[in-house]
Nucleic acid binder design. Structure first.
Lengths: 119, 119
DNA sequence: AAGTTACTCAACCAAATGGTTGACAATCCA
DNA sequence: TGGATTGTCAACCATTTGGTTGAGTAACTT
């Protein structure tokens, strides 16, 4: 696990069991025992998973036996990161479109693409 | 690394070097060599990172020495997953608000909160 | 205060990860 | 065709991860 926040968040969500915990916590808070019950793995294993989620800031608890709560703000962090790339990808397409349009203007009677340009 | 797609995507993005590769590819395609140049690690290490990104469907290449391209569609997959929780979290707050409002209606002259209710 | 229940810590293990170096394969160019 | 360049594969290593069991701690209940 890398040091920075975003790395911890992504690493935490890279495990299906932990994503399932997040899914269940999104409908209601629950104690460690309640959360562990449905899985085949030991309570200790689930406790470890929750620690990973907690270190990533995805969940929190007031005290040991208190119900675990989902921290929804962290999702905004991820969304912000992701949006940059969705947005930039879109901008790239727009730049490409603009460039192609410009090329069309420069040579209205453009010769057809050669073989190598295919595929 | 877990089997399913989403796990591979999150695991791929859990590494800062790989996120940096994604960041750089979002502004322009680049070959393996170009991508590796700025880092202190070996070319082989970067090649491995790119394989992880490729297995996750985040980047692609037409052939060995062809420039690596970012596959923006995968970000939609993540966004969809994340949005579920942002949305559900919001719904929960709304349900809570509604419940509190209802309680207010039931007892217009509600007694003040006791000590334990604080924090 | 004592006992039970709920959870965490510690030590251990197998598998995965991120890095290395060296050899190999494929592609460009002369 | 031959030689340089570019990238991958293989073997290896240290560290991390996700799991186990056993022991310990903390908190309700009585």
């Amino acid at each position: 696990m890398s040091e920075d926040r975003l790395s911890r968040v992504f690493a935490a969500l890279a495990d299906p069991t932990r994503r399932d915990l997040v899914a269940r916590l999104s409908s209601a808070d629950a104690t460690v025992g309640e959360l562990a019950a449905p899985y085949e793995v030991s309570l200790q294993a689930v406790s470890k998973h929750l620690k990973v989620l907690e270190d990533a800031g995805l969940v929190s608890r007031e005290s040991r036996r208190a119900p675990v709560r989902l921290e929804a703000e962290v999702f905004d962090l991820m969304t912000k990161w992701i949006e940059r790339y969705q947005q930039q990808a879109e901008e790239r397409y727009q730049r490409l479109d603009a460039l192609l349009a410009e090329m069309q203007e420069d040579r209205p009677t453009r010769e057809p693409a050669r073989e190598e340009d295919a595929s």
